[in-house]
Amino acid sequence: MPAPPPLFLDPDLARFITGGVSINAGSGSAEGLPSLCLAFGCRVDSGTNRLTLFFAAPQAVDLVRDATRSGALAVVFSEPSTHRTLQIKGGDARLAPLGEGDLACVEAYRAAFAQCLVFLGFTEVMVRTLLDCPDEALVALTFTPSALFNVTPGAQAGAPLIPTPPRAPGAA
């Protein structure tokens, strides 16, 4: 099956998924057993348009195994204060070494997510504990977005998001 064309993330979406949102990624085994892991941040490579997600390796054993086997990855990004929720799927997930700036990206994510949840009444120490992981135990999965869905709760949930520029040829 030919790979679907990559989707372009507009600046608003890119800002959203790299901000203080909760991030969970899923994949599945060959037998159809779903896997799941909480991510510790997301980076968008503006050149390749690929997304990179960070995980604590001991927590992500099943996810990494499944995602690297099939390439299939689904990631939800949700802003707790507004429930705005986006799901991005891809078919070419693979492990990537952590690059320069990635540790800073994870640390920035911890601060942003903690700030968001403290606003909702959680303690910062609780959020920091949840996102705690030694630097050396972080792993990264990278993939090209091939489908985007608005999954904010409500009647419109599940609607595919057609990103603006560049439009697919012939799109209405």
């Binding site: 599945g28 159809g32 799941l36 099939s70 689904a74 799901q87 709760p153």
Partner: peptide
Amino acid sequence: GVVSTCAADGTPNVAY
């Protein structure tokens, strides 16, 4: 909670 499922073709999905 976060719910992870797979479609018949194996495509994963994650939902709250």
